[in-house]
Design a protein around this nucleic acid. Structure first.
Length: 500
RNA sequence: CGGGGAGUAGCGCAGUUUGGUAGCGCAUCUGGUUUGGGACCAGAGGGUCGCAGGUUCAAAUCCUGUCUCCCCGACCA
């Protein structure tokens, strides 16, 4: 028998382990279409839970949902210079609208389009186009909209959830009368993301501003939440952009102020994607597979009935059905406790391992012996596979909500402790190189807090180590120092890391 | 687009150097034995060996062309 459910383990081969966790949990797989994934029910259920919580947060902050088209006229992309440069290389282009049978029987494109269409890599331009029509007066502002959709970016190298050619996300797009209001919106949504990451995903994040080089194409400022994965690499988990008047100018979003003066509007955009699922996996999972924070788990408790004879079967099933009803009546987070009784004709061990690999927070085994004592045998995903305990049925039912909250807290604490251990203030180039372990790919180092001057961008050591500036932390205290690359004075530290 | 590697059963692979008519493990199905833990025994089903052409009595194997995928790099949420 294998020591762990997942081979290789994290320490043996982290990237391979990641792929195997997804496979073992039955979350997604590659599709026949290059770079595109099929999200299977277990993975999709997690996404649905993310959507549900985020959507409510958006609505609570005054936003409404709408839907804009998948296809965007090519000319729209040309409106904003930096935006073109940022996305042109990764656009899928639609050039025809019909197929006809070719001489060899194969279908060939026919009906060439006057103007090619691109499949949206993001929707600033087409939404801006519509906003320009909708916004006439200061009374029309602010516009606070979001859309849940898919986008496509022709990535050259893809990985399930972390980077796929097509991915699911939400993109918020807002229009404001003033610079100040738009900046406040940008930071407000960054807070929404950070709150979601930490309190729902149990994934600690650092809020920060992107350096100029890492900014969204066309944005004035890009803010990010950065998380540290178990291999100490950084994951950009969500971004919120202050677009200034760049896109408003490009799309012609103008309005008449209360004073009757024509003004150019201020816009923002912000998004998180199915990449969050990749972050979730790499934040908590272990060598036995996925570990889910209870607040996002599609299933909280799985009950595994154990019996041999038909007589035992009917007794045990009767017992667990009523147990399931009691558990389902319990509240947890923003709903009820989700319970499944697994009566499939499979061996007990096989079933138990399936749920371990899928990250279900609590497993309950109930057999004739437990029945006799009116007890249940409980295993938790945040504890060892064999670390299971008996407890009276009533006590279990009464404590399930608390237990789920405890698991949520435990995995957050673990992730936070791991991050804390791997963050370091670094004051010299030599120390910096050592931290990131030369050119060794396995040496991710962690988060390095260093004094840095933007003039050092492109420094050969950064390229050699494959390290990039992740963000300027928002809560960073002012601290005088000198840039470790250029020796120029610096007022605060920037986080550097290897990143996904 | 550069540099490597691979396409053989649903999945993972061997066989290719030295041509001889297709094999292993897992999974699936059947029967039996098991059962507080990812079972065991016996049997069964399933493949025009990526595609096209060529050499040959004979091609998974040799030759030519072609397509696809994976890894490393550039690009990136």
């Amino acid at each position: 028998m294998a020591q762990t459910a997942i081979t290789p383990t994290r320490s043996e081969n982290y990237p391979e382990w990641y792929q195997e966790v997804i496979k073992a949990a039955d979350m997604a797989e590659n599709s026949p279409v290059r770079g595109c994934m099929v999200i299977k029910p277990w993975g999709y259920a997690i996404w649905e839970n993310m959507q549900k919580v985020l959507d409510q947060k958006f609505k609570d902050t005054g936003h409404v949902n709408a839907y804009f088209p998948l296809l965007i006229p090519l000319s729209f992309l040309e409106q904003e210079a930096e935006h073109v440069e940022g996305f042109a290389k990764e656009c899928a282009v639609v050039t025809h609208h019909r197929l006809k049978a070719g001489p060899d029987g194969h279908l060939i494109p026919d009906g060439k389009l006057e103007e090619p269409l691109i499949i949206r890599p993001t929707s600033e331009t087409i939404i801006g186009h519509m906003y320009a029509k909708w916004v006439k007066s200061y009374r029309d502002l602010p516009v606070l909209m979001n859309q849940w959709c898919n986008v496509m970016r022709w990535e050259l190298r893809t990985r399930l959830f972390l980077r796929t050619a097509e991915f699911l996300w939400q993109e918020g797009h807002t229009v404001h009368a003033t610079n100040k209001e738009a900046q406040e919106e940008t930071l407000k949504m960054l807070d929404v993301y950070a709150d979601f990451a930490e309190n729902v995903m149990a994934m600690p994040v650092i809020k920060g501003m992107k350096t100029a080089d890492e900014r969204f194409p066309g944005a004035v400022d890009t803010y990010t939440i950065e998380a540290m994965m178990q291999d100490k690499k950084a994951l950009q988990a969500g971004t919120s952009h202050f677009l200034g008047q760049n896109f408003a100018k490009a799309s012609g979003i103008k309005f008449l102020s209360a004073e009757g003066k024509e003004e150019i509007a201020w816009t923002t955009s912000w998004g998180v994607s199915t990449r969050l699922i990749g972050g979730l996996i790499m934040s908590h999972s272990d060598d036995d597979g996925l570990v889910l924070p209870p607040r996002l788990a599609p299933l909280h408790v799985v009950i595994l009935p154990i019996y041999r004879t038909e007589e035992e079967k009917s007794q045990v099933l009767g017992y667990v059905e009523s147990l399931a009803i009691e558990l389902k009546a319990q509240h947890f987070f923003e709903g009820r406790v989700q319970v499944r009784v697994d009566t499939r004709d499979l061996r007990g061990g096989e079933k138990a391992w399936q749920y371990i690999k899928q990250g279900v927070p609590v497993r309950v085994e109930v057999g004739p012996r437990d029945l006799a004592k009116n007890e249940v045998f409980v295993g938790r995903r945040d504890k060892g596979v064999k670390e299971k305990t008996s407890m009276p049925r009533a006590e279990f039912v009464n404590s399930i909500t608390g237990m789920l909250n405890e698991i949520q807290q435990t995995i957050y604490d673990r992730a936070l402790a791991r991050r804390t251990e791997n963050m370091k203030k670094i004051n010299s180039l030599k120390e910096f190189e050592e931290f990131f372990g030369g050119s060794e790919e396995s040496q991710a180092g962690g988060f390095a807090f260093v004094h840095w001057n933007e003039a050092a961008m492109g420094h050969e050591i950064l390229a050699k180590l494959k390290v990039t500036p992740r963000c300027i932390p928002l809560n960073a205290e002012k601290e005088s120092g000198t840039c470790i690359f250029t020796g120029k004075p610096s007022e605060r530290r920037v986080i550097f890391a290897k990143a996904y």
